[in-house]
Every structure is written in structure tokens, then in C-alpha cells.
């Protein structure tokens, strides 16, 4: 037991030092960098290491007779999580999410501290001591709290009224945006009606010319293993026919029309992207086209920002209705290309 705990304590100390070092620039900031594609699990794993480390540390200190009081353990842990979220994760996490995480952490610490009667007594003792103010020192602390709490509240309220940001411009208000607007049941493009639930991409075909998603799935850019192109599945091969040829044509249309905003890597960071707010959709994100049916993309491309349904207004999309510039066939091919390039499969029901 002791051996495990000491090992954990060592890990805890090293991890904490490393974290601090990285944040304050003592060691290189990406000594332990977040590995693309594994970041979510890595974050949880890191937190688990810290928890284990702190447990070991607390155990060791305890056996050395230098136990940290329960109260400060709790406060310290909350502070650590807030600090970690603020400094470790890049790009910065929006305040709303950090607030959410912070609150949940506080609840967690409360649950931990009050999980049994003895700990709970230890935890609240300092609070009760301050409130009772039996000694002059405690009385001083209590008085300080009495002053500090209203001042802090005033400060927060004041801060929320003061214009924020670099140019001290007043920030735009937070906007709740829905990413996937509800599509209509059917859409009419160039005089033809497409039922979204049943329509199919006419260019997603196997060598026999039949609609075949299984076949096309096999030919897309491999998504999991570092974005490799399948052997003998190069759309830019002169001899490419059928599905692959359609992908190439879709790609040409994409690079003539779409990539200025959606980016040459389809990640929503094109040449003009940052002129818009919000920036254009990132197709490589698992939450965009990977979640949607192909017909949904077809509808969005054809109708653009203007064609979005009324009930979710305002939509904050400046995408032009592409049906005014492209033919139906061209739109289908672009959609085909987007899925091919990102390596996602269009969603299907069943």
C-alpha cells in the first residue's frame, strides 16, 4: 500500500511541476502536448493522473504527520481544476463551459467532503470557527470577509458592465445558435423536387452504375489512419472512372467555388473565413457532415443561408444559395467530394 502511494505521490509531484513549468515557460510549453485525435481521452487521463498523484501526496504527508486539513484539500482541488481548465487546454475554453465545469467540480468536492460524517465535520470546522470568531484572529478574518464579500460582489457587477475586449468595444451578446437546422421534408431545386428522406446522390455509384454506398465507402480517404488515399483509388488518376471521376469533378467545382471560405482542407478556415462570424462550417469536424444525411447537405448547399427555416431565425449564415450558380448535378458532385475528402460517410437511417 505504502509503495503504491509513494509512487503515486512522486507522479503527483512530477505532474504538478511539469504543468506549472509548462504554463510559466520554465520548460517548453509543449513538452507534453495534446495529441491530435486523442485529446479528449488524454485530458481525462491527465486528470486521473493528477487525482491519483494528489491522493498519494496526501497519504504521504499524512503519514509524515503533515496532513493538509480537509478544508484546504477541497478548496485546493477546486482551484486546481479551474487552473487546469484555464491554462492547460488550448484553444481557450469558453467561459460558459468553464463555469459549468467549475460548478460541477464544486459539487463533486462537496460530495467528496460530505460523504461521511467525520470528514464533513472536519471540512466545515474551519467555516464554523470563522463564523463563531472565538479568538481575535478569527474575528479579524470574519470582519475581513464581511468587507470582502460585498466588495467582490460589487466588483463582479461593475466588471460585467464595463466594456470588455482589446479595443474596449462593447462585446456582442452571446448568441445561442443551433448548428443543424431542421430541414424541410422536400426541397425544390431547378424545378425538380427532392424528398430529403429518400433521395440519393446520383453520383454515388458502383461500376455498374447503381447507387451503392458500401462501394463508395471503400474508396474514400481513410479517416482513421492518417488520411491516406486508398491504393488504386486516386480520383486524379487519368483513368479514374465512375465514382472516382465524379469525386474529381466535385473537387474541381469545390476549388472553384467553395474553398475560399470552407478552406482547402475543408476545415472551415479558408481565405475569407475569418471575415465571417461565425466562421464557415468545418467539414472535418465529426459533428458536421458526418452526422448528416447527404440530402441534408444537398439542401443546405442549394438553398444557402437564405433558405434556412424561419423558426430558427436568426441563422447567421451568409452562404449563397448555390442553386443560382451551380446545376443540380454539380451540387451533388460537390457533396460527393466533401464526403470523400473528409473521409466521413453520409448518415443513413438503417
Amino acid at each position: 500500500m505504502k509503495a503504491i502511494m509513494s509512487a503515486a505521490a512522486v507522479v503527483g509531484v512530477i505532474a504538478s511541476l511539469l504543468l506549472l513549468g509548462m504554463i510559466f515557460g520554465v520548460v517548453k510549453a509543449d513538452t507534453v502536448h495534446l495529441v491530435e485525435g486523442y485529446m479528449p481521452m488524454q485530458m481525462i487521463f491527465e486528470l486521473a493522473i493528477f487525482v491519483a498523484g494528489f491522493t498519494g501526496l496526501s497519504y504521504m504527508l499524512n503519514s509524515m504527520g503533515m496532513a493538509i486539513p480537509r478544508f484546504w484539500q477541497g478548496i485546493g482541488f477546486v482551484a486546481f481544476i479551474l487552473f487546469y481548465l484555464k491554462s492547460r487546454v488550448y484553444p481557450p475554453i469558453p467561459f460558459s463551459v468553464r463555469a459549468m465545469y467549475g460548478t460541477v467540480t464544486m459539487v463533486a468536492v462537496f460530495m467528496w467532503m460530505s460523504s461521511n460524517e467525520e470528514d464533513w465535520k472536519k471540512f466545515r470546522q474551519p467555516i464554523l470557527n470563522v463564523m463563531d470568531a472565538a479568538t481575535p484572529k478569527l474575528k479579524l478574518i470574519r470582519t475581513l470577509f464581511l468587507i470582502a464579500i460585498p466588495v467582490a460582489l460589487w466588483g463582479f457587477s461593475y466588471q460585467s458592465f464595463v466594456p470588455q475586449g482589446a479595443g474596449a468595444d462593447v462585446d456582442e451578446p452571446i448568441e445561442l445558435r443551433t448548428v443543424h437546422p431542421a430541414p424541410p421534408a422536400s426541397t425544390k431545386v431547378h424545378g425538380k423536387t427532392f424528398v430529403l428522406q429518400t433521395s440519393q446522390n446520383p453520383y454515388r455509384v458502383n461500376p455498374e452504375g447503381k447507387y451503392d454506398q458500401e462501394y463508395s465507402n471503400k474508396l474514400i480517404v481513410e479517416q482513421a489512419m492518417g488520411r491516406l488515399m486508398q491504393a488504386n483509388a486516386n480520383p486524379w488518376d487519368e483513368k479514374a472512372e465512375g465514382y472516382l471521376k465524379n469525386v474529381r469533378e466535385g473537387g474541381e467545382i469545390f476549388f472553384q467555388n467553395c474553398h475560399f471560405c470552407h478552406g482547402d482542407n475543408l476545415n472551415g478556415r479558408g481565405l475569407h473565413a475569418f471575415a465571417f462570424n461565425p466562421i464557415p462550417a468545418n467539414f472535418t469536424d465529426p459533428g458536421t457532415i458526418a452526422q448528416l444525411q447527404e440530402t441534408f447537405i444537398f439542401w443546405r448547399v442549394s438553398k444557402g443561408g437564405l433558405g434556412l427555416p424561419r423558426e430558427g431565425f436568426p441563422w447567421a449564415s451568409v452562404m449563397p444559395p448555390w442553386e443560382q450558380h451551380l446545376t443540380t448535378d454539380e451540387i451533388w458532385k460537390v457533396v460527393l467530394f466533401e464526403y470523400w475528402h473528409t473521409g466521413y460517410y453520409p448518415r443513413t437511417w438503417d
Binding site: V179, G268, R269, N277
Partner: peptide, 17 residues
Amino acid sequence: VMTPAELKAMGGQQHPV
């Protein structure tokens, strides 16, 4: 939920982590 400034800092609707 985020302010436009945070959105810019993050560089997109989705947070990579």
C-alpha cells in the same frame, strides 16, 4: 455558448478537445 470574442479565439464553433 460563447461570446463572439471567445468564438474568434477558439477559431470555430467546435472546440477541438
